[in-house]
Nucleic acid binder design. Structure first.
Lengths: 122, 122
DNA sequence: CAGGATCCCTAATGATACTG
DNA sequence: CAGTATCATTAGGGATCCTG
């Protein structure tokens, strides 16, 4: 079993913080990219290249890195067909789907409170 | 008016990211401490020292810094009585209170999914 | 196509000491 | 009590180049 302690890069106190439910959740979906990646996956599986197009500002490194962490945390499933050229799909796990109400609420809250939100639906 | 661009330390792309509702919300409550601070304030106003006791691992610098950012973002109100010794209370603004459903959902999700959660109710 | 490997910089966080 | 100031550390993120 991979514990958060091993898969995380955080220091000492993360172990204690992480025992608190709210903090645990924010560790799982926090950071600049994870929520938006999860949210993009809300409807259907997406390929690496599709996600990259939907998130034009993300670097390939960050996308790969965040997807890997989401996979380790069992929120996202990586489905790779062993063909040439590679075809890899990502989709929400059952656990990941249970985050959707939270992500939706966050999207609604942002839609209301963000003065900069215009037509961005993400 | 203080825009997020000015109050944030993020670089170029934050401007675009921030226009997305989900990302905007995560910018407001993300990081290691903000959710837990907001969540501690869910019932009643708390003083600086009380928060410090409830979050034994936070440094005074981080607590002051995060509270200041939450105040700038209008999620928390700082109420300081001008007396000696100082008496300062923090409480959720109306806008901050609208985050409570999200924070509660996050706490519930963490309670269910965190294998390390024991009796920590935060 | 879907990444991996490297290098590098800065923002974020921490430790410690000090103060109105 | 409720913070600041200063210094040191680290982790997040980006640029670029490379590959099965």
């Amino acid at each position: 079993m991979i514990t958060k302690k091993e898969s995380s890069t955080n220091s000492l106190n993360s172990k204690v913080i992480i025992e608190c439910p709210v903090s645990y959740t924010i560790e799982m979906i926090g950071g600049r990219w994870k929520t938006i990646i999860l949210y993009q996956l809300r409807y259907e599986p997406l390929r690496f290249g599709q996600l990259k197009k939907m998130l034009p500002l993300i670097t390939e490194k960050m996308l790969a890195q965040q997807l890997k962490q989401l996979e380790i945390d069992r929120l996202v499933v990586r489905d790779a067909k062993e063909i040439i050229p590679p075809h890899v799909e990502y989709y929400l796990s059952e656990s990941g789907k249970t985050l959707l109400p939270i992500l939706t609420s966050m999207a609604e809250w942002g839609q209301i409170h963000n003065p900069f939100t215009k037509d961005c639906k993400v």
